[in-house]
Each structure stands twice: as C-alpha cells, then as structure tokens.
Design a protein around this nucleic acid. Structure first.
Lengths: 246, 246
DNA sequence: AAGCATGCGTGCGCTGTCGTACAGACAGTT
DNA sequence: AACTGTCTGTACGACAGCGCACGCATGCTT
C-alpha cells in the first residue's frame, strides 16, 4: 500500500468534528479530560465485527466506513463516517458489539474516548445524548438509503454516490482510493468499478490515476448519481441544523 | 383485497409486546394512561414518508413494515416490526420525520401513544429509554442486513428470509400475503416471487394458495435462506435478552 | 537501470433478474 | 350459474453484472 504514507504533522481541533462542535463549552470541559487525539492510518481496523468497540471515535479529517462481511467473503459498506459523525454508536445504543467492521478508508486525524468513559459521559445526561440520538437517526437514514440503492440502482449511479460521500468529508477534490477499495465498499467486482470509472473519466467528470481520483465536475457527479445521495444528504443536513439550533 | 376481513374481537394485552413487557410495573403505570389499544388493518399506512409520526405504535399481533419508495415508484422494505418492537423510533431519535412509510403487512392488534406523550414519557428517564436504545440497535442491525442481502443474495434466498421474518412474528404457520405484496417488500418483480415460491412449493417447503402461505417445513426454509436471517435474529435475541436481564 | 508488486484495462461466456405480454385459476357477487 | 376482479403461472428477449483469465502500465525498491 503506497498511497501517501507521509505523516501529517498538522494539529487537528476537536471542533472540526461536527458533533463535538455542537457541545456547549461547559459540557465539553467535562468530556475533554477523557478525550485524546489520534491518527487514523489507511486500512486500520477500529473494531472487528462482533467485538465490543474499545473506544468511541470522532474523526476530524479521517474517513471511516462500516463494512459488513458476508460468509462467502465479499463485503459491503453500510455507512460512511467522517467529521460529521462518530464511530461506535453501539456504545450508546446497547453498550455492546455490532455485526460489522469499522475500517479507515482515508487516513487522517480525530479524537477518541475509552468506551467506559464515553458511557459515563453520556449518562451524565447533558445535551450530548440528544446530539448522539439525532446522529443515530442520520445513521439509520444512511443505512436505509444504502439498502434501497443496492436493490434499485446501477453500479454507475452508486459509484457517483459513493464518490460524493467521500468528497463531502474531504477538504480537496482529490480522493485517495483504488478501484479495488471502491469495489469492496460497493460490494461489486473490481472490473465493474473500472467500467463505471472509465465512463466518468471519458465524460470528463473525474480523472483517475492509480489510486488518486480527482473530481473535475462535481455537479455532473451529482447529476449522474441516484436520488439516494441527495435524500440522505438532505436528511443529514436537516438533523445537523436541528443540533446547532438546539 | 379480500384476505380475511373479519373483525377480531379478542383482547390483546400490552405485555404481548416485548418492549412493553420489559418495563417495570411502576414505570408501566406511568405510561398506561396515555396508551390506547388499536386495531391495525391490512395496508393501513401508519405514517407517510417525510411526515412526523403522530403516534408511537407497539404492535402485539400486527406486523408492520417500513417501506422506502424510490422516485421511479418501486419500493423496498428496510425493516419489519412485530410484537418485538415499536414503530416510530424517530420520535426517540430526532423528534421528527423519517424518509420512509410504515405500512401494516398483517392486520392485528397493538397499542399506541401520542407522539408528545411518548416523548414526555421517554424524557422521564426511566428504564424505557435504554430499552428503546437497544431496540434502535436491533433496528440498525436489521437494516444493515437488508442492505447486504439486497446486494449479495438471490431472490430465492431473500424470499425464505422474508417469510421467516413474518413467521417469527405470527402465532401460526400461516402467512396472509400475496405474491404482489412480497414483491413490493423485496423490491423485485411479482413474477420473480412466483418463480421462487414455486420452487419452494415443489420442494414441499410451503404451500401457496391465493394469498395464503402455509409453511410446511420451517427448518428447510431456514436452510434455504441466506445467513442474513440467522445473523439478524441472533443479534435481536441477544439484545432482547439484555433487556430482560437488566 | 532493472525488477517487481500493485493498480488498471479488456474480452468473453454465463446467469439472474427485468420488462412485457398474456393465459389460466380461483373466490366473492349478483 | 354466470360474471368479474384478483391472484398466480408461463414465456421470451434484453441486459446488467459476474467470474475468470489475461495483458499492460505505473511507480516504488534495490
């Protein structure tokens, strides 16, 4: 794996994560002592399927995806989490494991908090509980959309949607992602991704170069993507707005 | 629609719903005044996509499915809710709407509570909050599994899975469901359901008769279904056990 | 500068599912 | 007993996506 392995020495601020940013100062001071900065490296596994997460993770520049592995070895991504969310919701919802794997899709920074500390913090019943509940709703929306998309839309459309999901969580228009990674996320053959990506490239929407995708025309990407992208994004934005107006 | 339209005069008890049954007596007494019995009729819409649910519904003998409609008019079921759960989780998670429709798939009884009363009750911070949170986790598992299943498994397998989901929530081995209803839930053509159902019938697993499916060999159904059924069920059982041991 | 692993492009036959169109069977109604 | 709407079965061409098997290009390594 040779995709940009340089270490990033810049500092990341907690407020870059939307959920942490939504906390009041006073509540944040309660959380802060238990919160530590972390570097996420590409393909790092944050937790395995069936195991209880040891931490709750709040990405700032990193992107994590929740992958489900089938018995036959193929995989599918069911949710994408960036600086808009948190990894380890099951600690809030059940204090226990989930049947999927959390994999770092884009190296970067973030913060984490030990499972027990997170549970304690949530139980202090501050505003964070509601913030996390609303995020759970956004997560459910995303999963719903994934299910529907898997049933009804073409690989071409799904690729566009997936690229937009990454794009929304990145500062630039450059996505570091091989076609093989994309195929694992979409749950399709690598060759199918090649085909779809070629179409996009020929149309001048993206340019692809050994694991580096540059998005040239975002509007076109949105146009070619299925409704799923817009629907999930609208819902996410709506819930986020509620959080900041609370 | 002529599938058994007789009115059922038997009484249904709140405890038939697993979530209500898990409440302590003292907490139940706080909820009881706001809880009213309801009859769910076949194809009744409990809430529309995009609207805020007016009630939280706790089915006892009825079965409700959450359907997502695509722009092109096709639909897909993303979750099934029977006496094991509650319809209207978004009232807990965001106090607001969800992008799907709740449709009664099997007429029956249950209880309901006005949205505001439900929110108030939850905010009293009894054990019910945790019960509902755990159920949210089960719901997420079910949706995850639906997404994966839609991607990787055949219609034959999915039909088996779907029949088991109904079977688990019904007292008998008879399911009242036309092939058209099944096709709407699975998000496939009605003819594809016919094909799959014929295979099952020829193998002696079910017998099909104008909207009445009789399951003859449940084990065989489980064997022919994909892993998704077992996975989701195990997780659901695990969470339910946690609830009752709490 | 050569070597090698990784990532991408291509071809081909196969199968599952779709779209469409229609025919037969059953149940409730008059 | 005939009628009508609903539910189920059948047929066939089209095609998206799969599995497999290559070949080529690129960029890091030594």
């Amino acid at each position: 794996m040779s995709l940009k392995t340089q270490t990033d020495n810049t500092v990341s601020l907690p407020q870059q994560n939307h959920l942490l940013a939504a906390m009041s100062d006073s509540e944040w001071h309660q959380w802060e002592p238990d919160m530590e900065p972390v570097d996420f490296s590409l393909n790092q596994v944050l937790y395995e399927s069936g195991k209880t997460p040891a931490y709750m993770y709040f990405p700032t520049t990193a992107i994590v995806s929740l992958l489900y592995m089938t018995q036959s070895g193929s995989s599918s991504e069911v949710a994408v989490i960036g600086n808009d969310g948190v990894v380890g919701l099951s600690l809030l919802l059940s204090g226990s494991n989930t049947p999927n794997q959390a994999l770092v899709q884009c190296a970067g920074k973030g913060f984490r908090m030990r499972a027990q500390a997170a549970k304690n913090a949530i139980n202090r019943e501050g505003a964070m509980l509601n913030i996390l509940l609303r995020y759970s709703q956004a997560m459910i929306t995303q999963m719903t959309q994934t299910a529907v998309c898997n049933r009804h839309h073409s690989i071409d459309q799904q690729l566009c949607r997936r690229l937009l999901l990454s794009l929304d969580r990145l500062p630039s228009n450059e996505i570091l992602m091989t076609q093989e990674m994309l195929s694992n996320m979409l749950g399709v053959r690598r060759e199918s991704v090649t085909d779809a990506a070629l179409k996009l490239q020929e149309a001048g929407v993206i340019s692809y170069k050994r694991g580096i995708i540059t998005v040239l025309d975002r509007k076109a990407l949105e146009g070619r993507s299925c409704e799923c992208y817009a629907t999930a994004k609208n819902e996410q934005d709506r819930l986020q707005k509620m959080t900041f107006n609370a």
